[in-house]
Simulated assay, not measured.
Amino acid sequence: MNDRPGFHLAVPVDDLARARDFYGGVLGLREGRSTGTWVDWDLAGHQLVTHAVPGPPRGPAGYGSVGDHRVPVPHFGLLLPVAEFHAFADRLRAAGTEFVIEPVLRFAGEPAEQWTMFFLDPAGNALEFKAFSDPAQVFAR
């Protein structure tokens, strides 16, 4: 067993070349192992695998309500420090990313105060990146 906790997530993509452009180019993730049907990505030390699955982009299965927003479900992403969140949002804007939910501060003044943004990869997989104003409050109740 590995001493470092982490996760492995596999997502379907309809085109590996577009996945490489997006995950490697736009998001700036380091590419790991690959074959003609899948590519491993380093998502902050976690293994994200894009698997080629023929067919049209799928998109979210639905939307859930969180505060004043309807968020795409399922989704995945990372918790970032606030400064990294804003730098990443700037990088996405510069790349012409279309946001499902533009970078926004949610729950202002509450323990769960956080910056969040949602967008889709080219295959329609929803991603959320967020930053808590106080990282100690991530799991606060």
Rank of each mutant, 00 (worst) to 15 (best):
N2S: 15
D3S: 14
G6A: 07
F7S: 14
H8Q: 13
L9N: 10
V11A: 06
P12G: 08
V13N: 01
D15E: 08
L16A: 12
L16Q: 10
A17C: 06
R20H: 11
R20C: 05
D21Q: 05
G25H: 06
V26R: 00
L29Y: 06
E31R: 13
E31F: 08
T37V: 15
D40F: 10
D40M: 04
W41I: 02
D42P: 01
L43Y: 00
V49I: 12
T50Q: 02
H51Q: 13
A52T: 08
G55Y: 13
P56Y: 09
P57I: 03
G59M: 03
P60C: 08
G64E: 12
S65E: 15
G67E: 11
D68L: 13
R70E: 15
P72E: 02
P72V: 03
V73E: 00
P74Y: 05
H75E: 10
H75N: 14
F76T: 00
F76V: 03
F76H: 04
L78Y: 04
L78V: 03
V82A: 13
E84P: 03
H86S: 09
A87W: 05
A89P: 05
A89N: 04
D90F: 06
D90W: 08
D90Y: 06
R91Q: 15
R93Q: 12
R93E: 11
A95E: 09
G96V: 07
G96W: 08
V100N: 11
E102G: 10
P103H: 06
V104I: 12
L105D: 13
F107H: 12
A108F: 04
F119A: 01
P122H: 10
A123H: 05
A123S: 15
G124L: 00
N125D: 00
L127C: 03
A131S: 08
A131C: 12
A131G: 08
P135H: 07
Q137Y: 06
Q137H: 09
V138M: 13
A140F: 14
A140I: 10
R141S: 15
